[in-house]
Design a protein around this nucleic acid. Structure first.
Length: 314
DNA sequence: ATACAGGCTCGCC
DNA sequence: GGCGAGCCTGTA
């Protein structure tokens, strides 16, 4: 066990993990347990300090990606760096927030979501999880993620908890559709499996796509089975650090229509998209995440059903 | 109970 | 290129 503690200013761990961008972190006593890559962590925040407890047992063993040539083995990156990268503690949050448009809706979301960061997720894990997310509520996405991990991933022990790594594409690719359906994937099983096969065969090189401009990256993602514009934008934002990508789901559609197009009688999807791509600026993805989380969190807290809140707004 | 979820895809117009 | 229906399954 290795404990590291360091300052993480302008960061809200709970809000970040609860904002619908990542689905596997589990709340424990004072923090959360989860995996970053293939290593288990327990992370907890006290004020501006972040404490990270790394799994005990065999650490990143030789032969993994940190191994460096024949004899010399490079040290795994220090815990602080791993955590900093994952939670994107290096994002200039003040600048990002300052780039948002100055309007009442955006300002309220910005104040509410102070410290919320868009994290850097592993590409395959993010893609696979969002393929499973279509027409699903957050609670259910978490269940699916857990089921896939438990069945096909590797167990890790951390602080008296057992969690599982996310299975690599190769593992999902050789699972049967039936096995995947047993993880409650429903019709998504076929898509997840087909995409896993494209990725594991090397036909689609997710890492290599990092070099592509936004348009090409989105196009490639949308050619994967089960990936449309919404999921492609999620993956671009949460795994490729394309901070301008603006996923529009039913929540965002509601927010945009009610807050920015209240008087428009009919509104095409493409007009909504055009607006969201320009109005929110170079960090539109961050703006989207803030609007999204604010809308969801306030709706949950007020206990008002979405339908009735819609009716009230009209 | 039963409508409906943080969509994608296809067939139709 | 827009619109509607079907797809699985758990939750409210």
């Amino acid at each position: 066990m290795k404990l590291t503690e360091f300052p993480a200013p302008d960061f809200d761990l709970t809000m970040t993990l609860d904002s619908g961008q990542v689905f596997h972190w589990e709340k424990v006593d004072n923090g959360f347990v989860g995996v970053i890559g293939d290593r288990a962590f327990c992370v907890e925040q006290r004020g501006e300090m972040l404490r990270a407890l790394l799994e005990g047992g065999a650490p990143a063993t030789p032969g993994t990606r940190h191994a460096n040539g024949a004899g010399s083995q490079e040290l795994a990156p220090p815990v602080m760096q791993l955590v900093t990268d994952y939670f994107a503690l290096d994002h200039p949050l003040a600048e990002i927030c300052a780039s948002f448009p100055d309007d009442p809706v955006m300002n309220a979301a910005r104040d509410f979501c102070r410290g919320l960061r868009i994290i850097r997720q592993p590409k395959w894990e993010c893609l696979a999880t969002f393929i499973c997310s279509s027409m699903k509520q957050v609670a259910h996405i978490r269940q699916i993620s857990a089921a896939l991990r438990k069945r096909f991933g590797d167990p890790r022990k951390i602080d008296n908890h057992v969690i599982h790594t996310f299975p690599p594409a190769e593992r999902i690719a050789r699972a049967s559709e039936t096995e995947l359906r047993e993880c409650a994937l429903g019709y998504r099983a076929k898509n997840l499996r087909a995409t896993a096969q494209l990725v594991s065969s090397g036909e689609c090189n997710l890492e290599g796509w990092s070099a592509l401009p936004n348009g090409d990256l989105r196009k490639n993602l949308c050619e994967l089975p089960g990936v449309g514009a919404k999921i492609a934008n999620c993956v671009m934002l949460f795994a490729y650090e394309r901070l301008r990508a603006f996923p529009i789901d039913v929540w965002m559609e509601r927010v945009l229509k009610q807050q920015y197009f209240r008087r428009a009688r009919k509104l095409s999807a493409s007009r909504l998209r055009g607006f969201s791509e320009t109005y929110f600026g170079e960090h539109g993805g961050y703006a989207q995440q803030y609007l999204f989380h604010h809308a969801r969190a306030t709706s949950r807290k007020s206990g008002v059903s979405r339908n009735s809140s819609v009716h009230r707004a009209l």
